[in-house]
Structures are given as structure tokens and as C-alpha cells.
Design a protein around this nucleic acid. Sequence first.
RNA 1: GCAUGCGUAGCUCAGUUGGAUAGAGCAUCGGUCUUCGAAACCGAGGGUCGUUGGUUCGAGUCCAACCGCGUGCGCCA
Length: 629
Amino acid sequence: MADDMSAPTTPSPRPDPRAATALHAKLDAALRNAIIRALGDTGASADPTLKPATQARFGDFQANFAMGLAKSLGRNPRELAEQILSAGASLLDPLCEKLEVAGPGFVNITLRGSIIADALHEMDTPALGVPAPGRGRCVAVDLCGVNVAKQLHVGHLRASIIGDSMARLHERLGWTVFRQNHLGDWGLPIAMTLASLERAGANLSRLTLDDLNHAYRRAQAEGRDDEAGLAAARETQAGPHRIAELEAQHAGASALLTQTHETLRRLQGGDPSTVAAWKSLIAVTMREVFETAATLGVILDDTHSRGESFFRDQLAPTVDAFVQAGLAERDQGALIVRFRDRERPLLIQKSDGTSLYATTDLAAARYRIAQLGAERVIYCVDARQRDHFRDVFDAIHAIGWDRLPHGGTAQLIHVPFGAVLGADKRPLKTRSGENFTLKALLDEAVARGRREVHARAQQPDAPTAGLPHAELDAIGQAVGIAAIKYADLSGDVSRDYVFDLDRMVSFEGDTGPYAQYAHARIAGILAKAGGPSTAAPLQVSTAEERALALMLLRYASTVQDAAEQCAPNRLAAFIFELANAFNAFYQSCPVIKEADPSLRASRLRLCDLTRRVIADALSLLGITAPARM
RNA sequence: GCAUGCGUAGCUCAGUUGGAUAGAGCAUCGGUCUUCGAAACCGAGGGUCGUUGGUUCGAGUCCAACCGCGUGCGCCA
């Protein structure tokens, strides 16, 4: 499957690329060979279309190849299915307890319990059966994307936790991951803020992000007073070689703007004290960003910062490259890249000769592919930038910057996420109409999580009863953060969702705390039993054991699927189904109380495996799994 | 206007190469704790999958048109 990641248009190779588990692969191979035995070369390229059974009464797996195949051969699908099954009987019998043709030609497959147990034993390793197809390969994940001197808001929540999950999924599959925090740390807005702070005589060493945010907004308000001047000021994003010329143009601008230009000029010119001030602006911002990331459990630090300023020297060469390649043309003074299939061009240079955000994105993509060697570049950015990324990606394809240093083509993926809405279905705002800061949101979630956990611990029979206050606080924080992250990652990320803390923090239903509960419950059982007996043979006899075992066996392919499709909700759905399967199992199968020692030991191993898979899967969503709650 | 995304149960949402009677959660109603963590489990009711047409053995899924909502649309990022 992973081999397909870099070349999505490649026809699917012989084995089913989704056949990630050993068991699925074996069954898939047996069916393929059965088809070839029955049909010879005409069956050589047939796909068994093997998948988990949609309903338990259909068995463990179903294969839907017969209908399509029969049609192309002009034959009766049921007859064809029967013929193939009997031709491959010697291959299928060792795996299957029961094979039957049903309905229009479905093949329902019930596996031998011993085969399931063997497969489960195989996955009972530290890696939990998850392979490492990404070993030796690189992926860049564009996440967070904060702006210096601006407060984090809910949009950054999504960009951070979706990106973090993408990074973790790929790391789990062996990829080398480059987290890329594309900071807004350059250009006029920064200069405006700096100039505003200078006027106020602020002591940059003891500012907070709030102070910066106010300065930024004050500067913006001041700028708005002189629309014409502001328009002119935008031009001051020019490179140093243009500054003198621009100075002349702006002679008529207001004193305020002149001051801003002056600040920008000093910054771009490398004036030591201005650069130092600029750096402290970034430091103040990032201190809070990293604090928030830590609270959220998002892996992010200084080494991931690759902001606009990082690419400032690459802007002119980027524009030149498009001109040289004949891909850019002059239009109304600006440089644009046109596309065959749409009216809208991509603007890469303004009429005053300066570049803009698309130029930075092009330079950044080139860096990620050519310098970092990323064969996938994943952008976790707001869905409203769909068109922008479509254009940027097509421009990169056109100029050939998607070619990897060692051959092959990089895949550029925009993971567009929707808005976070309030109860009124409008973008989340505070009562006063302000954007919700991320900090406020997290504080509330953590408070809710702690309240729930403390309340539960009051009950004398609660497993958390009597725990120290600080420990309950820690658990409550984990629960509150899990609630938010799970709610965000468990749906299709491209869609808007309504932020409803009551629902998120609920312990019932498809929520983060429910998954954490399942994990803590199992941890409690294992602790009481004195741990799992790892050497015990696994037995799969009851329907609930079988259902649980089959769920566990789907883990590896689910992780790969979630990574390949950049769809964390697939993994979240798996966690929920696994927790359900476990709870059903635990309801009807005695574990600690089981009298037969070998069955008891087998069930403890099932518990242990389930606990480890839930913890591992949650970790790939960036969610922690406390042992008690 | 052009582009793009989305319309699935009262509410919030799943639904992977087209597959069997469209699934969950919440809410509602009814069962299950003197026994392993009941923050759980089991069951019931609840649907013209926006509308109409098309493709085919088969469409929530693919195609077309239409209706409704959202978002974007060269010198902001």
C-alpha cells in the first residue's frame, strides 16, 4: 500500500494493497489463486475484492468478485463462484471453516478459529502488527501556521491537532516526518506591530502575546485611518533593492506609515537592534504557542519553525524560475501563472515587483521536496484555501518541482479542514463577538474534564476514589483534552463541526472519554488479575471473542489506510468499534472469574492486546490513555 | 456571474475500489449490577439518503440537470 503513496496513478499491484494484515493477505492470495486455477489467464488480473463481512451472520469476511467477473465472462455469478471455490478448495480449506455462496453471488467466509488465533498471536508484538513501509522515506507536514504577534484561535486548533495526528500516523509507519510550522513572521504586518511597539516605548523583553496582539490590532486600526497610505505601504514588502525607490514613492504617506516603512527597511536591511526586536517578538509569540501545544499534547517546538522569513531569499529566484520556464506572464503589471482548465490565474508577483504568499508557498514546497526529500507534503490548512492550494500544486507540477532528488514524484496533499461553529451554526465567537482564543477554549475543556473526574472520584466505589487531588487533576486534564481532540478528529475533517463541550466531554457514545474509559477499564482488570500471561495459547471460541479478535486484526490496515487517505476519522471509528467489541466481549465472557485456567489466560491476553491497541491508536490521534479514571 | 464543497433518523454524524434488509451516538421507551470497572451491556421505535432523470445484474456512492446552504474568486494571508 505504502508504495502507492508516491504514485497514486499506478495500477494496483497483484496483491490487494489493502491486504495489510497477514490473515487478510493469506486469504486474498488463496482466492486469487483459486480464480486463476478455475479460469487460467483470464482470471490472472481479477481482484477477489475481499473485505470484512458487513454483518456477522455473513461470516468473517466476504468476497464480491463473482458478480463483476461473471458479467465480463457472460456467465452465471453463483455458478462461477462455486466453480472457483471448488477449484481452490485445497488452498481455502486450511483457512476456512465454512464457505458459501449467497445472494446474487457473494462469497461468505467463516475462518477457522485456530487461524484467527494464530494471526492474533502473530500480531502480539511491540509493533502490534503494524508494518513500517515508510522506513527510509520522508514526509513533510505543514501544521499550526501561527502568525507572529497574533493570538491563537480555534482555526489553529484544527491545523495543529490534525497535522499532529498526520505526523504521528506517518511516524508510526516508519516515515521520517518533518513538521513544518509555516509561521507568518515576515512582511508589513510584523513591521506595523514593531513600529507600534516602538512608538509606545514598550519593553520587548517583558511583553506577553496579549500585549503583542493589542499592538498588532492598534497598528491595524491606525493603518486603516489612511487607506491610501496603507495601500502604498503594502508595497513596502519589497526586497532591499527596491527600498530606495519605494521611499521616494511614499514621500507623501503619513508620518505613521513612513515610520512603519522605516522599521521594515531596517528589518530587511538587517539592522541589529531591529532584528533583535523582531526576534523577541517571535520569541514571545512562540513561547505561548509552545505552551499551548504542550497543553494540547501536540508535538511542536523551535525546530519545526519554518516561517515566511525562512524563505525570503528564495522569493526572487522562485519568480525567476517561473519566468525562465516560460510559465509566468506579465498581466496588468503583475506576473501570473495561467492554467489550461480555469480562468483564475495564480499571482506570483505584484505589479510593484514584490512577491506574495503564493510565492512563499512555492518556495516552501520546493524546499520540502528538494531539500528535505519529502515524497509526501501534507498541508493541514483551512478548507477556504482549497483554490489556492490547487493553483500552487498545479504550478509546482507544471515547473516540475515535484520531482524528487532520487527519482520519483512527490505527492502534494491539501487536507482541508472545516470551520468550528458555535451553537448558532456560525463561526465560533465569544459573546462579545470576538474570536475565541484557543487558550480560553482549552481552559474550559480542562475545567470540564476535571469536574467530571472529581465528581466521579467522590463515589466510594469508584476506582479513582481516594486518589490525590493533583492526580485527579491530571486525569481530568487528559479527559478534557481528549474530548476536544476526539471530537475534532472523529468526523470527516473537511467538514465544519459544531463545538459542543457537553457532548464532547460526555462519557457516553462516540467520544474520547468513552475510548479512554475502555482503556482504563481493561487496565484495571489486568492490574487486578496480576497482568497478562503472555505465553498462554490464544483461544477464539465464542462469538464475542471472535468479533473482538477480528477487530484487533484490522488494526494494521486501519493505521495504513488512515495515513494514506489522511483521514484520522477512520482510526477514530476503529477505536470506537474496538471499544464496543471489547465491552460486548467483557459483558458475556468471564475473564478473572473464568474457572478454566487456560481459557482465563487466553482471555487475559485478549484484554492485554486490546488495551495496547487502544492506547496505541489513541496515541496516533495525540490522545493519552490514563490507566485509571 | 464563475468556481468549489456540502444536503443521510428529531439532533450530531459514519458510510473505503458501486454490493445483501442504509449504520452509529445523543435524545425517547423497555430490560441487565448481593459476582471481573454499570463511565458498561442488551433490546425497541424512528429514513421518499435534497429533487428529477440517466448509467447497470445492483446507486447514499458514478453521470446530468435543478433546488437549498456554505466557501472562494490576481496585486491580503
